[in-house]
Design a protein around this nucleic acid. Structure first.
Length: 423
RNA sequence: GGAGAGAUGUCUGAGUGGUCGAAGGAGCACGCCUGGAAAGCGUGUGUACGUGUAAGCGUACCGAGGGUUCAAAUCCCUCUCUCUCCGCCA
């Protein structure tokens, strides 16, 4: 959420920031803000008078004075206050709606661009392997090895679901364990196993609601949502709380399944593990001091890259331009993994600095050690990594001519010693 | 799911219609005392919004939302959550 005071005091600057992302108009919210302050001034003056008189009444009563006239006057005042209060509340609600629908302002350094074709490649790691045989896509490799079963997943549930079987299920779990181990033991994150359903406040806090309700799976009986990412429950750990400055930074990592409608993606990536309604992901979330959030973004991104390096899979890091940036993010690096069947790099992680945008929505603050004042902290998160896509990348990058798949060395332990799948 | 109890500031805990933003205690900060510390004594100690260069001033907030009243932490209604007992259950 953007700060109304910042909009009030630096309207042009904020508008310029929003212009980099698309069509947004601040004039409605600034007009509402002005109206609000005007009305608030009026009603507060009346309340002040009401409070003064209310304190006199018991005194007058003690002296047995007649209060009929005062009561009549106060009744009228009270009614006016009630009306104005309702008006202020209405304006407040409208302002809130407006503010919740503005995206974050991109960091000034971020390249202005229209869509993903304007993104900047930052670095590359590893060389795509040259195959001396006809390669297969991961969905064929998996089905042929009998470790993936898409047809039965469709029977059980429906389109865009998948089922892992035997060594496939084991590989999926191995990846989760390997990622959590690396983040906890090497990168010093604290593991969280959060609820997989969250309430409306949590979804609003991280920015999924109100604008993107169609993308989520909703449980009407409780008004809960299936988590679209662990970012939602984990970031909301500290919703409406004030942390001590000395507690920062806080690093968390969490495995959860993720549930997404993928509304509007019909026809794209319909085969395999790339785009499903349910997928597994290990997420990293940081709560940091505002002065350090951009350094923290670099290390967070490196933490995600480490997983691919340890697995030996080529990837590149891309900085998103303003037009491709997620709604709540000020700056984002995408990590894209080499996918032989696509003959291109495919997104496997998205690492973002939200600055105070989520903290403001979710009301997450810390107490400044020097000034003793509360301030909004900065939140970051990144996938570390999307497990289904990592699974697919391993199948494709480590496939052999006979259809078997080599298990990356670092995973062998988690695969109970198995070095090749399909032998 | 049924019955009951409860939700007050950083914590604990008073307060059942009126000078209550809220007693007392703990904690914390500062000062005094001390060779130093503890104890003791004194002072201070919430958040948000509005207004002001500022000191300050004003308003709101006692789980959330409505209602009654000149006036609500206090009375009424709805909801949420917590605890205890019963039922069901992995």
């Amino acid at each position: 959420m953007l700060d109304i005071k910042r909009i009030r005091e630096n309207k042009e600057e904020v508008q310029a920031g929003l212009d980099k992302r698309g069509q947004y108009d601040l004039s409605v919210v600034t007009a509402l803000d002005e109206k609000r302050r005007e009305t608030l001034g009026q009603v507060e003056e009346m309340k002040s008078r009401q409070n003064v008189v209310s304190k006199q009444i018991p005194v007058l009563k003690k002296e047995n004075k007649d209060c009929t006239e005062i009561f009549a006057e106060m009744k009228e005042l009270s009614n006016t206050i009630k009306d104005l209060d309702a008006e202020v509340k209405k304006i407040d609600d409208e302002i809130k709606i407006q503010l919740l629908n503005f995206p974050n302002i991109p960091n000034p350094q971020v390249k202005v661009g229209k869509d993903d074709t304007d993104n900047l490649e930052i670095r590359k790691w590893g060389e795509p392997r040259k195959f001396d045989f006809e390669i297969k896509a991961h969905w064929d490799i998996g089905v042929d090895l009998d470790i993936l079963d898409f047809e039965r997943a469709v029977k059980i549930t429906g389109a865009r679901f998948s089922m892992f079987k035997g060594e496939g299920a084991r590989l999926q779990r191995a990846l989760i364990n390997f990622m959590l181990y690396t983040h906890c033991e090497e990168h010093h994150y604290t593991e969280i196993s959060p609820p997989f359903m969250v309430n409306r406040e949590s979804m609003t806090g991280t920015g999924q609601l109100p604008k993107f309700e169609d993308d989520a799976f909703h449980l009407p009986s409780k008004d809960f949502f299936l988590v679209p990412t662990a970012e939602v429950p984990v970031t909301n750990i500290y919703r409406d709380e004030i942390l001590g400055e000395e507690e920062l930074p806080k690093y968390f990592t969490a495995y959860t399944p993720c549930f997404r409608q993928e509304a509007g993606s019909a026809g794209r990536d319909t085969r395999g593990l790339i785009r499903n309604h349910q997928f597994d992901k290990v997420e990293m979330v940081k709560f940091v001091h505002p002065d350090r959030s951009y350094e923290e973004l670099e290390s967070l991104t490196n933490n995600a890259e480490d997983i691919l390096q340890l697995l030996g899979i080529p990837y590149r890091v891309v900085e998103l331009c303003t037009g491709d940036l997620g709604f709540s993010s000020a700056k984002t690096y995408d990590i894209e993994v080499w996918m032989p069947s696509y003959n291109r790099y495919v997104e496997i992680s998205s690492c973002s600095n939200f600055e105070d945008y989520q903290a403001r929505r979710a009301n997450i603050r810390f107490r400044d050690g020097k000034t003793k004042k509360t301030r909004f902290l900065h939140t970051l998160n990144g996938s570390g990594l999307a497990v289904g896509r990592t699974f697919a990348a391993i199948l494709e990058n480590y496939q052999q001519a006979d259809g078997s798949v080599i298990v990356p060395e670092k995973l062998v332990h988690y695969m109970w010693g198995k070095t090749v799948i399909g032998m």
